[in-house]
Amino acid sequence: MKGFWHDAAEFFPILMNGVALTIVVTIGSLLLSTVLGLVWAMMRVSGIKALSMLSASLINVIRGIPIIVLLFYLYFVMPDLGVTLSALQAAILGLGIAYSAYQAENFRAGIEAIDKGQIEAAQSIGMGWWLTMRRVVLPQAVRIVLPPYGNVMIMMLKDSSQASTITVAELALQGKLIASSTFKNTSVFTLVALMYLTMSIPLILLVRHFEKRAGKR
């Protein structure tokens, strides 16, 4: 135990560099997946057949490819096509695209849960599609969507570790590098696990808060 604390004090600063990158990857891909997911979901509920079908097939293609393969593709294959991305860019792009499929399905479920009478009431006062979405549907859908959105945040935090496979020196990769050079596997990976857990706990509490609030209405 004493050894652990000693190692922890020594490795903590290096691992914190990893934490910083983990947070950058998580937030970056969270934002990207939210925007893309919203776009897919809007296309899906637009009532325009071509858009809705395009979105449905995109979602299925994205869902059918493992995140790690998507990352390899962006980082190792794209340069052959003339597009070179930094490891960090590829990680954010890959995770963002991969998760946009789940975000889209979550958003769509929330939008479709809104009572049809709400949309008719909006139309009956002359609102068009976009105004109906903005003023009537989305504000109500947010309440429904937030708890699963929180869960996606937790999953993304953990899945950001997959960025290590394309050399992004986030928390998991930093841990692996220290472990392989010091052979202190137990100390290092225990510390890494604790650091992920520490970041997850506030998110878990946030989800609980969302769930309580959604249950109120």
Binding site: D115, G117, Q118, E120, A121, A122, Q123, S124, I125, G126, R135, V136, P139, Q140, R143, R217
Partner: peptide, 16 residues
């Protein structure tokens, strides 16, 4: 629609 309003059986007020 702005000239002909409608009142619904189930009110359809915006709850938020």
């Amino acid at each position: 629609r702005t000239q002909v309003s409608m009142v619904f059986q189930r009110f359809n007020l915006f709850p938020h």
